[in-house]
């Protein structure tokens, strides 16, 4: 199966990057960032995936998926939320000061 979690994650990252290159609106750039982070989370979680692995709650003698990426992603999600919030707040402030969110009209951004 080619379309597994890892590939989809990487494709999401690429889509996010495309958005950041091609889109001129500040919000769309922020969305690009969010998509990248989502792809990254997916990528990470898939890295720890094991076929037929159960959730890492020890309850018998079966195979489990790797618990570490899950934990790391919890941290990453919080970090991502924080940066997104800050980015949005800054966008708000930029809009307040310049009355536009188009980076081609916002000089030097």
């Amino acid at each position: 199966m080619i379309l597994n979690g890892i590939t989809v994650g990487i494709i999401l990252i690429l889509i996010g990057l495309y958005g950041m290159i091609a889109k001129k609106h500040v919000f769309k750039i922020i969305f690009g960032l969010i998509i990248i982070s989502t792809g990254l989370v997916l990528f990470f979680v898939s890295v720890g995936y094991v076929d037929t692995g159960a959730a890492p709650i020890v309850s018998g003698d079966t195979t489990y998926v790797d618990p570490l990426p899950h934990t790391l992603m919890l941290t990453t999600i919080v970090v991502e939320v924080c940066t997104t919030t800050l980015a949005l707040v800054l966008a708000l402030k930029i809009y307040e000061k310049y009355k536009t969110l188009d980076i081609s009209t916002l000089e030097d951004l």
Partner: peptide, 8 residues
């Protein structure tokens, strides 16, 4: 990248 193999 191998998907779904054994853990590290």
């Amino acid at each position: 990248l191998e998907y779904g193999n054994s853990v590290g």
